[in-house]
Nucleic acid binder design. Structure first.
Lengths: 225, 225
DNA sequence: TCAGTTTAGTGTACAAATTACACTTGCAAA
DNA sequence: TTTGCAAGTGTAATTTGTACACTAAACTGA
């Protein structure tokens, strides 16, 4: 179609994806981080990442990388930002696109995670990360918080069925502030796409708590931004 | 530092930036678009774009590209998204990062724009664009609208000093809906970082309208979101 | 000079949304 | 049967957002 010479006078670069993998447990957000037992930056902490391959879209690369580490498919992932400073990777020039992923922390493949020398680290205890990964985490967290304020994305961090107390604790963790229980439940009650399953969770209280579920069809029908 | 072999087994890609350049005139948002008199896709409409060069960051590349076209420096620009589908450019594989820029439409360099065969096109009249540039415009517009709702970014589309009527017309154009004049002025009055200059604009009314200015120091001091 | 035209500028009442706040219920274990 | 524990529930006050119409100033042209 076009003369390939048009493109070939311009440089090419490695393209990578780095994934900020969020989990939720014990009332706190966690990240799945690698203590790198491989080069470059062996021994240091980093995000899970990987290079984009021929014929693979950025989104697919990000998905592949998270699946490689967790064994999970069907992930909620969103692109955050692309980092393109010439010296951001001290080895060679690499353009890296950050994605965040939301994961049900009960479900990941422990073997795969162990094999990668990866660990869930609670947010306040995040160690210093290599390159510009600290900044990626900041940006992803800000973006995820924004999205959680306007869409029920956080639900992807919980199991299929969850109690309202779990949901509230999750939102407190995401937003970083306590929420009034009655106001919270009033708001949830007004969302018809969060519906009672009729089943009861007995693990965390003697009385038992009603289990709820996210109804995607009802939600998509409403599309309140 | 690291063995370069680590990187070299992975493919490299062209990296481009494409810029959604917004202007504001006669109560409407416009985009600065190219009617391409060069390959590829000669004859079709596209965004202004360019390849990322060695040693140049993504942000710098986007800035350079907009400056090449408009002669303007000191631009308000934000990264929108990176598009990485393998076949998005039918010529060769190119990863493209979209940026939006806000430009005072009174100030650009007409010679440069003419030389590039570029034209300001009002939003509702945007033609079909090449590749995935339509989607880039959609995404940029959505992102810019969101930002305009929470920060006074739109002010970058106006001259240094502006009347409240201009500002209201701008926000009506950005949000795509009419705004009540009294409520609008009430809201602006509560923002101490939009301050009267004491000067009067006589061009658009016999009575004359007070000129206002954005005070960055006061705004940064407040950091409301 | 006076009537007409044009845009700037101003306040109040109502509705809606958000916030603050404390006790009762049901169940199981001791 | 008593105790402990988390689940579940309503109302009043405040804040925020929305609807709405006239006067003021200055120039123009008859």
């Amino acid at each position: 179609m076009e003369p390939t010479g048009y493109y070939s006078i311009h440089p090419k670069f490695h393209a990578a994806v780095d994934c900020i993998i969020f989990g939720f447990e014990e009332g706190e957000l966690s990240l799945l981080l690698l203590q790198r037992n491989f080069e470059p930056a062996k021994g240091q902490w980093s995000l899970m990442g990987g290079f984009v391959e021929e014929g693979e879209s950025l989104d697919d690369a990000a998905r592949r990388v998270v699946t490689e580490l967790t064994g999970l498919d069907d992930l909620y992932m969103r692109q955050v930002h692309t980092y393109g400073e010439p010296d951001r990777d001290p080895g060679e020039r690499v353009l890296s696109t950050a994605y965040y992923a939301l994961v049900d922390i009960k479900k990941y493949d422990r073997e795969l995670v162990r094999a990668h020398n990866a660990f869930w680290v609670k947010l306040p205890a995040i160690p210093r990360l290599i390159f510009d990964h600290d900044r990626m985490v900041d940006d992803a967290l800000r973006f995820m918080r924004y999205q959680a304020r306007v869409k029920p994305v956080g639900i992807n961090l919980l199991p299929e069925e969850f109690t309202l107390t779990q949901l509230q604790t999750l939102y407190e963790a995401i937003l970083g502030e306590p929420i009034d229980k009655r106001n919270f439940r009033k708001r949830i009650a007004s969302m018809d796409y969060i519906e009672k399953t009729g089943r009861i969770d007995k693990t965390s209280s003697r009385k038992g708590a009603a289990l709820y579920r996210f109804n995607r069809e009802k939600y998509d029908g409403n599309f309140k931004i």
